[in-house]
């Protein structure tokens, strides 16, 4: 058993790229679902549209990196409006079905042969991240403490990612303390009551959808830049569902819930995966093979989601009196 490797990869997972990407996606979902009660099951599409907006602008059309970011952001906002204008009047379960269908449409279009010239089909796009790494202030080399370390590229994307997370959390903190956030939480509880008090529920839901989408889309950028590539199937419904698991794990309607949730989620996933692999390789576990370790981890995700919602819907850090899960 190589416990050092397990320890190192686990610690790296806590602050690693996946954690950053999923934390940003989950912060967005937390605004939409945790605070406003909107069941947006299409968060993957927001990440995807941003990532592809960047990738296509730079890789397909050869335009500058910053323009790619701007186009990614614009595409995200447009997607939010396209999704929101017709659907925000629908009740929760219909909204869920519409958004999940829309996200699948986006993914299928990205991977289609018909648009291969633009989106690159199922292989996606590469070669758009040079502009980002050209900004890297860290000279070449390995950075880290003891055995835990990253090269300068990973360090750069992680620093940017965590700065974005801090900014997003600060934004959520300020907003949710304000009267604006109060309206959102009230909509989660009962939108008719909010209407009867003279607030435009539609406008606030739209603001929530756009804001959550834009924060989520930062995760899309981080993913694309961190991997220096995008593929359509990354942005499948499972991304959205894992992000929901993260929100619930950390505690819905908690400012830091999604961040802690994402770190715990990936630490557990990596730790369990590595430990099981080691145990299988060392012959302690004989009823599965190393290739079966992957599925086991995600079975545990599903099981964890079920158990959390049944026994601890407020998540690890939530306050039961304030949980938001069941607002309709």
């Amino acid at each position: 058993m190589d416990w050092t490797t397990i320890f190192v990869t686990t610690v790296e997972a806590a602050i690693g790229l996946e954690t950053v990407v999923y934390a940003l996606a989950a912060i967005g979902i937390n605004i939409q679902f945790g605070y406003t009660g909107l069941l947006n099951f299409g968060q993957a599409a927001f990440l995807g549209v941003a990532a592809y907006g960047l990738a296509v602008t730079v890789a397909t059309f050869g335009l500058p990196f910053w323009l790619g970011i701007v186009i990614g952001l614009i595409a995200t906002v447009i997607l939010a409006f396209l999704l929101g204008i017709p659907t925000l009047q629908l009740r929760a379960d219909y909204l869920a079905i519409v958004t999940i269908a829309a996200a699948e449409i986006v993914r299928l279009v990205f991977r289609s042969v018909a648009f291969k010239d633009v989106f690159g089909g199922s292989d996606g796009r590469q070669g758009f991240s040079d502009g980002f790494y050209a900004l890297n202030p860290f000279p070449r080399g390995e950075y880290g403490i003891g055995p835990i370390g990253f090269n300068e590229r990973v360090l750069w994307i992680l620093v940017v990612g965590w700065i974005l997370i801090v900014l997003a959390c600060l934004l959520v903190y300020l907003l949710m303390k304000s009267p604006w956030g109060r309206v959102l939480k009230a909509i989660r509880e009962d939108e008719d009551a909010v209407r009867s008090l003279g607030k435009s529920v539609f406008s606030y839901k739209m603001q929530s959808l756009v804001l959550g989408g834009v924060i989520g889309c930062l995760g899309g950028f981080v993913y694309a830049l961190g991997n220096a590539s995008v593929q359509p199937d990354v942005f499948g419904t499972e991304l959205t569902f894992y992000a929901y698991t993260i929100v619930i794990l950390g505690g819905a309607a908690r400012v830091l819930g999604p961040v802690l949730g994402a770190a715990i989620f990936w630490v557990l996933l990596v730790f369990i995966g590595n430990t099981l692999s080691e145990l299988v390789a060392a012959g302690y576990i004989t009823f599965m093979t190393t290739t079966q370790v992957g599925p086991v981890r995600f079975m545990l995700v599903g099981l964890g989601l079920v158990l959390l919602l049944i026994f601890r819907p407020q998540g690890i850090f939530g306050d039961k009196r304030e949980i938001a899960i069941d607002a309709r």
Partner: peptide
């Protein structure tokens, strides 16, 4: 609740 059950079904 129904929303909770919907998310449970995802799990």
């Amino acid at each position: 609740g129904l929303i909770a059950m919907m998310i449970i079904s995802i799990g």
